[in-house]
Simulated assay, not measured.
Amino acid sequence: MRYLMMTKGGSQPDEKLYAEMGKFIEEMTAAGVLLVTGGLDPAGFRVTSSDGEITVTDGPFTEAKEVVAGFALVEVRSKEEAIELARRFRHIVGDGESIIQQVFGP
């Protein structure tokens, strides 16, 4: 089962956070759980459609805490395992919100 784990914007990381995240990422990579991870540019842009009209809006968006700041694609045996990884991640990075969605398809 693959899950996309996304985290919304938070505080600026410090050296301790980078070190802890590095260990966590190394552990998940060695276990074969982590497929890919990355940070996202907070500026971004939004593409919407309504009645056949396409609108492109450049960021950054007004609510920075609502912007997805990073992601990880993991492959695990169960939903519970994905939740446990998310709990460990939140414990490392502190207050904030993560969104986890199962990825379907090949």
Rank of each mutant, 00 (worst) to 15 (best):
T62D: 14
F71G: 07
A72M: 14
A19Y: 03
F45A: 09
E81P: 02
A43V: 08
E97R: 15
V47H: 01
S50E: 14
S98N: 10
S49Y: 10
G22R: 03
Y18Q: 04
G70K: 00
P42E: 14
R46V: 10
D58Y: 08
R90N: 08
Q12D: 12
E80P: 06
S50Q: 13
V76T: 11
D41F: 05
E53D: 12
F24Y: 12
F89Y: 15
A19C: 00
G38E: 03
G70F: 02
L34M: 04
T57P: 00
R87D: 10
A69K: 00
R46S: 09
Q101V: 15
I25D: 14
I100Y: 04
V93S: 05
A30H: 06
F89A: 11
P42R: 13
P13T: 03
V74G: 01
K16M: 05
A31D: 11
E53T: 15
K79Y: 09
K79N: 03
A30W: 00
R90G: 06
R87M: 13
A86I: 10
F89W: 11
V67K: 02
A64K: 06
T57V: 14
V56R: 03
G94L: 09
P106W: 15
T29K: 13
Q101Y: 12
P106L: 15
L73M: 05
G38M: 07
E27I: 01
T48E: 10
D58M: 11
E84H: 11
V93G: 00
I25F: 14
G105F: 02
I99P: 05
R77A: 15
Y18R: 04
A43M: 05
V33H: 05
R87C: 09
G9L: 09
R90S: 14
G38A: 01
I99C: 13
E15C: 02
A82Q: 01
K8T: 07
F24I: 08
L73V: 11
T48W: 05
V68A: 02
F89N: 08
E80F: 01
G22S: 04
S49C: 09
A72H: 08
E81Q: 13
E81C: 07
Q102C: 06
Y18G: 01
R88L: 08
A64R: 13
E26A: 14
R90P: 02
R88A: 05
G94C: 07
D58K: 10
V36T: 10
E66N: 09
T48K: 08
Q102V: 12
I92K: 01
P13M: 01
Y3P: 00
E81W: 01
Q101G: 12
F45W: 03
V56K: 05
T37I: 09
T29W: 04
I83M: 12
R88M: 07
E53I: 12
L34C: 02
H91R: 11
F24G: 01
E63R: 05
G105M: 10
I54N: 06
P13I: 03
F71V: 09
E63L: 13
M21N: 04
I100L: 13
P13L: 02
I83L: 13
R2F: 04
G96D: 07
M5P: 02
L17T: 04
I100R: 03
E97L: 11
V103G: 03
R87A: 10
H91L: 10
V67I: 15
I54M: 15
L17P: 00
M21H: 01
L40R: 04
Y3N: 01
G70V: 03
H91I: 11
G10D: 05
